[in-house]
Design a protein around this nucleic acid. Sequence first.
RNA 1: GCACCGAUGGCGAAGUGGCUAACGCGCUGGUCUGCAAAACCAGUAUUCAUGGGUUCAAAUCCCAUUCGGUGCUCCA
Length: 492
Amino acid sequence: MTIQLFNTLSNTVEPLAPAAGQPLRIYACGPTVYDYGHIGNFRTFLQVDVLRRFLELEGVPVRHVMNITDVDDKIIRNAAAAGVPIGEYTPRYEKAFFEDLDALQVEHPEIIARATEHIPEMVELIERLAAQDLAYKTEDGSWYFRIAGFPAYGKLSKKDFSGITDGARVDVDEYDKDSARDFALWKAPRPGEYHWQTALGPGRPGWHIECSAMAMKYLGESFDLHAGGEDLMFPHHENEIAQSECATHKTFARHWFHVRFLLVEGRKMSKSEGNFYTLRDLLLKGYKASAIRFLLISVPYRQQLNFTFEGLAAETGAVERLRTFHQRLRDVKAAPGLNAALAAETDRASQSFHAALANDLNTAEARAAVFELVRAGNAAIDSGAIAAENVPLIQKLLADFDKVFAVIEDHDAEFTRFALDWAEREGRLAEAAPEVLAQRSLSDAQIDALIEERNQARKSRNFARGDAIRKELADKGILIEDSKDGVRWKRK
RNA sequence: GCACCGAUGGCGAAGUGGCUAACGCGCUGGUCUGCAAAACCAGUAUUCAUGGGUUCAAAUCCCAUUCGGUGCUCCA
């Protein structure tokens, strides 16, 4: 199935396909590792994950490169404030970033590229530009890109710079740049600042050059798709295009994929609004990683998503519904044969699921198709209409669904525990919700023992005692379900 | 200020010219259960921010207004 995907560059939906015999080459802008990631960051990484997972499901091999920006102004500032070199400051946040990706079931890219490990590649790229007089050195030793040398500048963000003249409105002499729009390729060090000694002189890379250099190193001068948050469109991606295409005289990335920002409780997320959440904040509040993932990917990537706690609770229930159905399917005792009507319905759902994702990654429609089948499947189980041969057909659809959405297979307890351990080390355990802490105080064996005690009480019709135990477990976030086949429990 | 995007039930949200406006959560009633939970069934927007227009036909197209978001500066 051909995947149709919106391309920011052309402003239209276009098919996305790799060159013959090649994997699909993706470059995605990664994090600047100066702090813990927040849910806005993760929405972008999750949507890229949905894209790559769907490509894989469709049998398209992927070569996905993500950069780690481990040197920039904020890092230099924060590291200096902490009194450590940047090389000691960034690794803990890079590690935390990957731990968070794991909690959210985000597949790792094939290649992780750190800016600080690619200084020679960047220097070489700047030299290529300098050789064409498209990069120039200013008095303080910094290097800038000459935008006047790239007439197509603005083609991605649809900005027209042709009418803009320097001097009248903008103060040009700030860094003695030739034009106010010219951007830094290489920044000369301020006194005492960490820097590299290179053929360009001492300094550190500008923000944009790392992505051009590393994308070209791992994917070639021209590749299939470049992804990032909508804010990166300008100036970051526009500048990448300018410096890359001027150096190579080839199209840099053919397809540009931008993920829309989210709102939190209807407002833009910001520290001053008090609605700024890291993944770890939410795990400590007791929200499950699966629910967070499901909420962040449920709204198609080009739509603004309103992240609310009510929505998060709703998604917790939605994930639970999928898991319960998955479980019922495994346990069902179906008569031999095939229910043709249910098989046809399964097939329809499967087609809708694939078609929805192929249509510009419409995740909302894709999950709707699966939920419709969940209802049909549950009804068939209840009425006894389900037949043995239907079971694997439905399981196949759920498996395909989970290859992209990755929420049915349950890793939640593991990552909640991880967040608690982390909070303890950081002295932030007080931020954890009481119910989350209570869960931690109860081992699986203790839970099983209490359930056994309750079974005995119920058998002797001592329902008061049985209900008391159920209440005690519920207070600690453990829910009990009685069924014909015994008692099941799960963490709320 | 300029440019671009959006507004659909109690909440989140799909649908972008034509069958009864998906799906999830919630709520109400029923079935099941010792009681619950889970699951199922039924109900829950005559209507898609507001006003006007185009059309045989509009949530979907056009204009205006209001509100929210983004970019123009660091930001996923």
